[in-house]
Design a protein around this nucleic acid. Structure first.
Lengths: 215, 215
DNA sequence: TAGATTGTTAATCGATTAACAATC
DNA sequence: TAGATTGTTAATCGATTAACAATC
């Protein structure tokens, strides 16, 4: 199941775009083409979300979109904290600002007080000391780590103390955390090394390797 | 095999750190603990690279490091081009500048001429028109896409025309490219959506989902 | 030798793919 | 009806895990 979630997120994105264009129905093979998978895979994935397709009509775009929202989203907009206001942190704030209806980076933190106090892309920046205060006030359970490798473990532990239950970790450090904490790693250096490796393997089957719809 | 490469990159990183500290030998269970996998997995992975361990002595750190370098690296330093000098592109340049012995972002490109002409973190910035000129001059086959979704496909096609054979794609767009091109996707929005989903599933087995050592 | 670790083979597990009756 | 698509079951595939003789 863990691998299907990434694909389901992509189906939702595609269906949202179709809905915006006014498309009412879609067949598995069209979704499969756009999401670069097989029609059978699409049917199987969607069936797990909600069995609502009909033969000869395929899937209703608005109905399936509702089902996907119900499956993927919490009932409310979920707040996220970001720790690390370096280049990457700023890039994430810029990339994510106001783009997602149900997920929102609510506050950013750093230990460098030169970086705190202001707003970046509409997101207030605080000193790391204030992390617990903010997370408890606003009931935040999601965190993003965008700090250098040598402080990542320490930051992760502080996050957990402050009530964070899932972490997206951009540092190359392997976080050592309790089993009830969900960790998703994005290691850019490994991604580049892997790309370089497979570029050299001429006769390897080119299986697409997607971070979050894959692994 | 595709999934083991990410782990192998991590073993190398760990062994390089041990070598720096002067550690000469290592057992599978120590590597397994650090890389968060099982000793059997480590032995199996390392065996594929080069069977050089001995019972009661484990693996020689410098020898295994040599084997890993031979397995993962090209003989020379490989140049990479980056297209898209936005927040993310700058973050990648900062993160990667001079950090890797065998991989180097040699040139960055954008269509906005306000962003070109200068240097960022030691990397020269050119107009996208000059892509082919640079890639052919310097024999570059690796590319990173850090542009907005609506231009990603177009940029990828241009890259391929210019001789790029493997692409690391940070845009949420599903690139539609010939099968001989290796594509690795890093979709930050999907990663965050997935983290939010699993944070809500209280009783799910917390299998770590690593971008590049996973999927 | 005794004890721990190795490479290797067999068993397990999970996910993907193929096949097909049921449906519009 | 004929044709295409659906949900569902069975078969396949690949990767992980367990087991174990060989080795130091």
């Amino acid at each position: 199941m863990i691998r299907s979630i990434g694909r389901i997120c992509i189906y939702r994105r595609l269906l949202a775009e179709m809905d915006r264009r006014g498309q009412r129905q879609v067949y598995s093979h069209e979704l499969a083409r756009l999401a670069q998978t097989t029609p059978a895979q699409v049917r199987r994935d969607l069936m797990n979300v909600s069995g609502m397709g009909t033969p000869s009509k395929g899937y209703s775009v608005p109905d399936m979109l509702d089902s996907l929202d119900g499956y993927l989203d919490a009932g409310h907009c979920e707040p996220i904290v970001l720790v690390g206001i370096g280049y990457l942190g700023r890039a994430l704030l810029g990339h994510f600002a106001g783009r997602h209806p149900k997920l929102h980076i609510t506050a950013a933190f750093d230990i460098d007080s030169e970086k705190t106090g202001g707003m970046i892309h509409g997101c207030p920046c605080y000193h790391l000391q204030q992390l617990g205060e903010i997370t408890r006030d606003r009931n935040i359970h999601l965190g993003i780590i965008a700090v250098p490798a040598n402080t990542a473990q320490q930051v992760a532990e502080k996050m957990i103390e402050c009530g964070i239950r899932a972490i997206l970790n951009f540092s190359p450090e392997r976080l050592n955390l309790p089993a009830n904490i969900y960790v998703e790693d994005i290691d850019v250096t490994v991604a580049i090394e892997r790309m370089a490796f497979f570029a050299r393997q001429k006769n390897t089957q080119n299986k697409r390797n997607m971070n979050h719809a894959g692994s």
